[in-house]
Design a protein around this nucleic acid. Structure first.
Lengths: 326, 326
DNA sequence: CTCCATATGTCAACCGGTTAACACATGGAG
DNA sequence: CTCCATGTGTTAACCGGTTGACATATGGAG
């Protein structure tokens, strides 16, 4: 059975298709009687306008591309979900690309989003050196990463967060403090947390000790890396973990090795997403204002689309959530 | 600056636009020299074909609509993420609608997806009585819910899971066992877990005790409902919670009230999503095969799109993950 | 009488890619 | 000589909705 088209609605309503288009777009003079006739015909035919035709004509898709490492993660999941809601309320729908920290996947997704003629992009993936963004000629907002000077960035204060986390450990007596972070080829915001950690440690006359954890949750390789931290630092008494998922894994391994948290080992995580706060409320963590980041990112993108002025670089405040691990 | 069109590529390559189209679609006879000339021109112009025009002509968008309560939740987040990956590998992109268990939102999203001419739908929202699905004439796959006899359903074995969870509590000595569940107007799979719990309790000569928890995480109202469980059942020694997020909250409240888990109170959750397994590994829970559900749902949808045969009702097995809460 | 507002219709081009049908050219096999 | 394969071009219609320009009709105000 054929889908109803505007001509079918026009015929059933006994008006021209121009009139149907006028009713749909609320344009021109229209009597109440005609409007009702058209709506009745649409309902009877179960007519859905084909936005593809409209998109082609208007050169605008009302689609926004979101490129993020994954949504199966508390921080990114909440951020993407929050942005999707805000964009929907402004009449946009989102196409999501999970880049999994793989530059080739990120390029592929970008390519796909370009062919789908998205009206804008919000990019939170952190692969370095993707030159293709330069060529898109699209309004872009970046999350947590500087892409170039023309693209506004929304982030939380990762440096301050790193300072707060490290200082909290020091102030609570920790001295042999290890920091875990992403590989350095991944230009993620966690690198600022590392810088802050290192600066704060040196400032307190302590030795920075950094371990790299790969971005692939729950793999044996990661567990091995975590075990190596304890093996190589038997006197460890503090851990600043660059994200909450890793923090959970680190604590699990620590407990298996006999450490009591926080008596023997104090732990601070990072992100404080809603899911984490419910599933692991005991974790002391640096809380990013995720919903606020989403709000600012969407507002900035819409402002760019409309060529109105916007603030180029937003750094939103973080705060410490005191659980029980420090 | 204008976006390059197929005519621009043709002109730069010195061929006809029909030849460019033949190159893009790998159709007809083409010399290697011509193919190279066209590709070079595309690269030089940074040309992205406009799939909107193609969609209009071919009457196919390669978009799939996903309607789920939310993605900011371990179970749904993993399920949607997994489906998105599988659909992308088959050439589809997804448009997501978060219905938040609100029938009006679900209808609105469905409407929007229809106007975007999605090629199919995977529906995991559980609002009752949305008649509009009947009119879509689209291939639809449902997750965890019977919509009508024509729509294939993919679910895990919620009844068996409920049995296993309840029996595990009983086998480990619990006798005053409470079950928490969604409101009954929400036709979620959790209702089968409730049935199983009730049947298993009665079968063991015990009284079923069910409490309703609203679907809005971390609200004070929910905390109050949880507190009421302990107030009204001072001799409680077992809890079967219908999802892991609620289980975490229930345990948090229980600990605040002085219960030791599992000594004083044994707890079993449900879902076992990857995120939960990392953030709360101690939780004993019924693990759904989320990635397998995603795989089956996508395969079934694609089969429906291609009018090839498929299995109408897939119930996938669950298993118990023994953490430390039982 | 003229002009304006209201109301609806007609016409046709447009958005960008797809593609069928056919034309023309060349070379080789039967 | 005929037919087929290879290679490329031309033409034009199509997908569905949008919309400007203009036409026609009616009624009322100045």
């Amino acid at each position: 059975m054929m889908k109803a088209k505007i001509d079918d609605v026009a015929k059933l309503a006994g008006v021209s298709k121009t009139t149907v288009s006028r009713v749909m777009n609320k344009r021109g003079y229209l009597s109440d009687k005609t409007v009702k006739k058209v709506h009745d015909a649409m309902n009877e035919l179960n007519y859905h306008p084909n936005v593809v035709a409209r998109q082609l004509f208007k050169q605008e898709t009302k689609l926004v591309g979101l490129i993020f490492p994954t949504v199966n993660n508390p921080f990114f999941g909440q951020l993407v979900s929050s942005m999707e809601k805000k964009l929907f309320s402004k009449g946009f729908k989102v196409l999501i690309g999970d880049s999994m920290n793989d530059p080739d996947k990120e390029k592929l997704y970008l390519q796909e989003l370009m062919t789908h003629q998205v009206d804008g992009l919000i990019v939170g993936a952190h692969n370095h050196g993707i030159e293709e963004y330069k060529n898109t000629n699209l309004p872009i907002v970046a999350i947590d990463r500087i892409m170039n000077k023309d693209i506004p960035v929304v982030s939380s204060d990762n440096y301050l967060g790193g300072q707060l986390a490290t200082q909290l450990l020091i102030d609570n007596g920790a001295r042999i403090i290890v920091h875990t972070n992403d590989p350095q080829n991944i230009k993620s915001p966690a690198q600022k947390r590392r810088s802050a950690y290192e600066d704060t440690m040196i400032h307190n006359g302590l030795d920075p000790i950094v371990y790299t954890l790969e971005f692939d949750s729950n793999s044996d390789k990661k567990i091995d890396s975590i075990k190596r931290i304890f093996k190589e630092n038997p006197n460890i008494d503090g851990l600043f973990v660059s994200n909450d998922m890793d923090a959970a894994q680190v604590m699990d391994v620590a407990k298996d090795l006999g450490y009591r948290i926080p008596e023997d080992l104090k732990v601070v995580g990072y992100d404080g997403a809603d899911i984490t706060r419910i599933l692991l409320p005991s974790l002391t963590t640096v809380v990013q204002p995720i919903d606020k980041m989403a709000d600012v990112a969407v507002s900035t993108l819409v402002a760019r689309m409309q060529d109105v002025s916007y603030s180029s670089n937003k750094i939103l405040p973080v705060k410490i959530w005191r659980g029980k691990t420090v």
